[in-house]
Each structure stands twice: as C-alpha cells, then as structure tokens.
Amino acid sequence: MSQDSDTAGDLQQHLDETLARIESDVTCVVVRSIRDCNFSVSIADPAQPDCPLISVSEGFCELTGYDRETILGQNCRFLNDGCDIQPSDRQGLRVSAKTGKHFCGVLKNLKADGTPFLNLLDMRGLSVGRTKDGEERFFIVGIQADVSEQGSEELPLEHKTQMQYIATLVRDELSSGLQQEAIVTASAGDDVSSDITPYEEPRWIVGEVFETHALGG
C-alpha cells in the first residue's frame, strides 16, 4: 500500500470520527437537557432500531418507578405491556414515533411494581437539523402525567389544555438548551461536511396524528 493510500485512509478515518463526534454532541445535549427535570419527560431516538429511549427525567423515574439503567435502550412500550390499548391509540403511537407528528392520549400503563395507572401522554418530534439527504433529524419527546384520579379515560378539555401548556414549557426549555449547542456544532470544522446540518434553533415537527377517543371531552 502506498504512502498516499495510507494518508487517504488516515484522512477518511479522521473525517469519520469527526462526523461521529458531531452527531454525538448533538445527541448528548438532547440527553442531558431533561435528566434533572421534575416533570415526567422522555426522549426516544427514531433513527435507531425500534425507537429506543435515550433519556428520561427524574420525574419520569418517580412517576413510573423505573430506574434509568433498566429502561434506557428500550422502546417505551414496556409501560403498556399486558395492558388493553385501543387499536387507534397503538396506531397513533406508531405514526408519531415514525413521523414526529403530535400525539396526545390517555393510555392504560403499568408502573415498575405492577401498579396500573392512567397515563396522559403528549409526544412530538423535535428536529435538531437536516441530514445530508435533506431529511429531518429529530427526536421523540414525550411528556407524561398520572391522571388516574379522573377514574376514566375520558378527560375534560381543560385538563388536556393544561397538559399541553406544561408540555410547551418543557419543550421551550429543551429548545433553549439545544440552540447554543447547534450554533457551536454548526461552526465547528468548516472544512468538514457533516452528516447533520444543525438548526440554530430546533424545530417541532408540525402536524397531528389524530384526536384520540380519550380526549374529546
């Protein structure tokens, strides 16, 4: 192998490592942004097989009884394992995880100790940039609340509105934390073509999956 080939190989390795670091930096700031949050928040990565959880907040651990080491890397469906979930809700969750479109519904879930509860789930995709193919690079952000005290899957509109307001506050905080990292990442290595072109300000995926049966009033 010639010296030129060795040099080319070393350069390619350097470029690959740089691209991996850029992606890792973006992902890491997403992971760090919610860990200490008192609200129940989870973040999943649809770019990985089966859209696994990559971060959960302290509030999520308190709500569900699960510790991070047990659930990170898993799809969040473990919460409804063995529960009776409406087919329309299952389909809505799949569509939201795949497209990032907004889903909001009340689901029958189980805590780590087997205690059943009604989970008001609000989830939506947060886009941090575009891939070199022009596709949105987004993460799935879920906000959860135990609404078992309602005694029914039917919730008044004002409860839904309040939940969405809390979700907006959390998402605004996440966006603020990601903005600076996106600027720093975008300016790093001007001579390197990254797999991701970060936005200066992350964007929420627009669109609704549908209105579920449990939130009609």
Rank of each mutant, 00 (worst) to 15 (best):
I71Y: 08
I34C: 02
V26Y: 02
R124G: 01
T99W: 05
D36Y: 06
F139D: 04
G177I: 03
T7K: 09
E211M: 06
M123I: 15
R21I: 05
T115W: 00
K111E: 11
T197G: 09
V209Q: 08
S88G: 02
F138G: 04
K132I: 11
E158P: 00
N75I: 03
D190I: 13
R137T: 10
Q164E: 15
D191L: 14
D133I: 01
G125S: 02
C76W: 01
I196F: 02
F78T: 06
V31I: 15
P156K: 11
I54Y: 05
A44S: 15
I71C: 10
E69K: 13
D67Q: 14
Q12N: 13
E173V: 03
D81Q: 13
R94L: 13
G177E: 11
G65V: 05
P156T: 10
E154N: 12
A214V: 03
S96M: 09
Q164I: 14
T212Q: 09
R137D: 10
R203T: 10
S57D: 03
I34Q: 06
A214Q: 02
S175C: 08
I196T: 05
V170G: 01
S148A: 06
T70D: 11
Q48P: 00
C83V: 02
V26H: 04
V128C: 08
D89L: 01
L121E: 01
K98A: 14
E153G: 07
V29M: 14
G216S: 14
T131V: 02
L63R: 07
D122G: 14
Q74D: 05
G216D: 12
S5F: 12
K98G: 06
E135R: 13
N80F: 13
F78W: 06
A47Q: 14
S57Q: 07
R203L: 12
V192I: 15
F60G: 11
L93H: 07
S42I: 12
K132Q: 10
R124W: 09
T18Q: 14
D4Q: 13
A186M: 07
C28P: 00
Q13C: 11
D133L: 11
A145G: 01
R203K: 15
R32Q: 15
L174I: 15
P156G: 07
A167K: 11
R124Q: 15
P49F: 07
R68H: 13
G92V: 00
R203W: 08
S176G: 03
Q180Y: 11
D133P: 00
T27D: 09
L53T: 06
E181V: 15
V147Y: 03
S96F: 06
L107D: 04
D45L: 02
S33Y: 00
Q180T: 11
G129D: 10
L120W: 08
